[in-house]
């Protein structure tokens, strides 16, 4: 009986079952509407109001944006700090990761152990424990300066000076190059060896091979990393807050920190939303430029149609 039912109804079931997909994706659809779409639209609306959480928002047009761009000198500083932070963090971290991956793309003994050790700092990611460790190591009398003194290198006022505080925080990101490194290493292993052999026959040198073979072959991974790291970097918040709290003299006061401070210290929610829209537009511009320059080719078992 069971067999018969399945046999007769199969065609009908296969047709019906397509709609059940909607049921399965329903949690996400609700989540998308309530926790992403609604906040997204509201965020823009709030940015046009004087919303402060206590009273209901009052529409004030683009006054928040006018104030940001013309009257708020802190904003221009934050914008500058954020751009510098991103410009150094993203390429710096990825170049370090790529260089190390290139050197290690050989049959080294103990590669698994090395990979583990290199990845370890990234495991702690944005953890506060690591931010605190960084803050301690880079104190004026901290271990880093002590090491420099022993090596007879002039010591540096790391976190206390407006010139060095931001680079010190950027350095923490360089230390955490592990995840990009593991991705690059995996991508490099997938580059077909025939390509290099063919290049050898043509007499190509190492640099030519790198730019003509290696780089194009792993470009989709690089592209992916640049986008994701840029989005993260432009919103960066926890590191600067714990390590320097934006100081000294706002030299590490990134936009993420300004957003938080305006919203949760001064309760200027509308104004903070305007800041978040500036961050969003920067992200949109950067990603659309990056997308224009690339297209990803990925192979699927089901041929892309699913």
């Amino acid at each position: 009986m069971f067999f018969k039912k399945a046999g007769v109804g199969l065609k009908k079931r296969l047709k019906r079952k397509q709609y059940i997909g909607l049921v399965f994706i329903m949690p996400w659809l609700i989540g998308f509407i309530v926790l992403q779409l609604y906040p997204f639209v509201t965020s823009f609306y709030y940015s046009l109001t004087d919303y402060n959480i206590m009273a209901s928002p009052r529409f004030i047009g683009i006054q928040n944006y006018i104030k940001l761009f013309t009257a708020d000198r802190e904003f221009w500083n934050s914008l500058k700090v954020t751009v510098i932070y991103t410009i150094f963090t993203v390429p710096g971290k990825l170049i370090v990761a790529l260089l190390v991956a290139l050197v290690m793309n050989k049959n080294l003994k103990g590669i698994n152990l090395i990979r583990t050790i290199y990845y370890l700092p990234s495991l702690f990611g944005g953890s506060i424990a690591v931010a605190i460790l960084w803050k301690l190591m880079f104190q004026d009398q901290g271990i880093i300066n002590s090491l420099l003194a022993v090596l007879h290198i002039p010591t540096v006022q790391w976190l206390g000076s407006t010139r060095m505080a931001l680079p010190t925080i950027i350095l923490l990101n360089f230390w955490q190059f592990g995840s990009a490194f593991v991705m690059f290493l995996a991508a490099l292993k997938n580059v077909p060896m025939d390509l290099y052999e063919a290049a050898d026959i043509d007499g190509a040198g190492g640099i030519v091979k790198f730019f003509k073979i290696t780089l194009p072959q792993i470009s989709s991974i690089i592209f992916f990393n640049v986008i994701m790291q840029t989005i993260t970097a432009l919103q960066s918040f926890a590191g600067p807050m714990v390590i320097t709290n934006g100081g000294p003299l706002k030299s590490t006061y990134v936009l993420g920190l300004k957003l938080y401070t305006e919203a949760f210290s001064y309760y200027k929610m509308g104004y903070a939303c305007a800041v978040s829209w500036v961050i969003f537009i920067m992200i949109t511009i950067v990603t659309s430029i990056l997308f224009r320059f690339s297209s990803m080719v990925v192979y699927y078992e089901d041929g892309g149609e699913f």
Partner: peptide, 13 residues
């Protein structure tokens, strides 16, 4: 690619 920071305040509200 939707940044969390843009949703932060409306979600809090």
């Amino acid at each position: 690619m939707l940044p969390d920071s843009i949703l932060l305040i409306p979600k809090y509200a």
